[in-house]
Design a protein around this nucleic acid. Sequence first.
DNA 1: CGTAGATTTGAGTTCTGTCAAATTTTGTGG
DNA 2: CCACAAAATTTGACAGAACTCAAATCTACG
Lengths: 231, 231
Amino acid sequence: MSTVLDLLSAPLEPYAVRIATRKRQRLSLAAEPEEMLYLIRKGLHLTSAPMPHDRHQVLSILYPGDIVRASALPPIEGAAVISASDKGEVWRVRWSAIEALLGRDANVARVISDRLTDQAARSALHKSILAGLSGDERVVALMLEIAARTGRETATGVTFEMPLSRNDIAEYMALNADTVSRIVSRLRASGVLTPAGRNLLICPSFADLARACPLAPAITRLHNAGHLLPA
Amino acid sequence: MSTVLDLLSAPLEPYAVRIATRKRQRLSLAAEPEEMLYLIRKGLHLTSAPMPHDRHQVLSILYPGDIVRASALPPIEGAAVISASDKGEVWRVRWSAIEALLGRDANVARVISDRLTDQAARSALHKSILAGLSGDERVVALMLEIAARTGRETATGVTFEMPLSRNDIAEYMALNADTVSRIVSRLRASGVLTPAGRNLLICPSFADLARACPLAPAITRLHNAGHLLPA
DNA sequence: CGTAGATTTGAGTTCTGTCAAATTTTGTGG
DNA sequence: CCACAAAATTTGACAGAACTCAAATCTACG
């Protein structure tokens, strides 16, 4: 099966510097002196930017196959990619190399444009979630996203790892860590999520979880969770 | 001077259907049956999506040179482009035509990718504004954006038209119309904005306005407002 | 000149943030 | 494997910003 990741990896391989990442590792993003494109190969990664009052904000979650470069983020000093998974892999390529490829290889042009478009849609959805949903709904939206992306069907429900700390979740969902903790406690109490050890969660009924978030249909569609929902 | 708009218009022209738009006109966005790309030629336009509880949300403001297609927005039934200006112009092109062009014309591939990247950066900045700033700061952010894009230096300050209604502003800034009204009243009272007739505003000191919004530097940089600020 | 829609403003409510303290988890070195 | 310090999480009490609802203006336009 040829995935999006393969489609991009093949042409970029000759130009790429492989970077093995560990949890919390930062890759700083800057257009100067030379702009780099990062291709996510393995693991979950976050784009993060510093904000006023010593805060930070997680702008997006990057999954394997995603690409990112400084020009695609707000011009804020200190923007970075941060690894959320224990072990990840990222390829770094000079943007100038990509630009040259765009001219030579029609496939690369198509894949890059598709990737940017898909990521734009996810970014817009994330924006909708932040702007339109309550705190509880936002946290559920994140759980749905991670479950959709990384979850597995098990006997007791959909099992998935949550590699984001309470603080990461807060920075991604525009809440604060205390509030996130309260919300997660409520979700646990209501039974839609069950803790299953070290950062591991079980969602006994994916449909119930989806019901707790008005934008669930859009989330599951964009993150390919068809397989977790009843037809 | 060759602008971004020209760079895109030239190659797309043979495939484009010209659409003259009037205020509030909707162009619906759907991937089915055939996906269309819209190129903004004149005027300000909004991308809007319906939300739970009979709400709507403005996902982005589109300026001349911007492009949009359904795949770049969340898969929400009823997403549309809505004209904010009295008279606008939009070109509609079949996405399949663009895709073919990507292979033939290296320039098109480069421009499209640049456009998507720039728009991604603006979307991410918008997200930062929604997630990290107070209501007052968010409204100021919008004023800065519009002033930066469309404002002119006059004797009394930077003059610009605000084509968005209170409700549009509310939907763009994740506030409600009542709150926006209160905030604008406060801005007027504090003197950073002066009404100057029909949807026209004057900002006596652009620097003062910028001081009222922590993300002003990023906003002015992304929206090319260098010319409105003291060096 | 009258009406429908937009805007403004007030009063009361609610959700989320802030601050602080208690508790749990994690990482490290013996 | 255990002890301990540091960090993360949880929870309570309280404050504040923004929302809701409603009424009063104001504007645009036929």
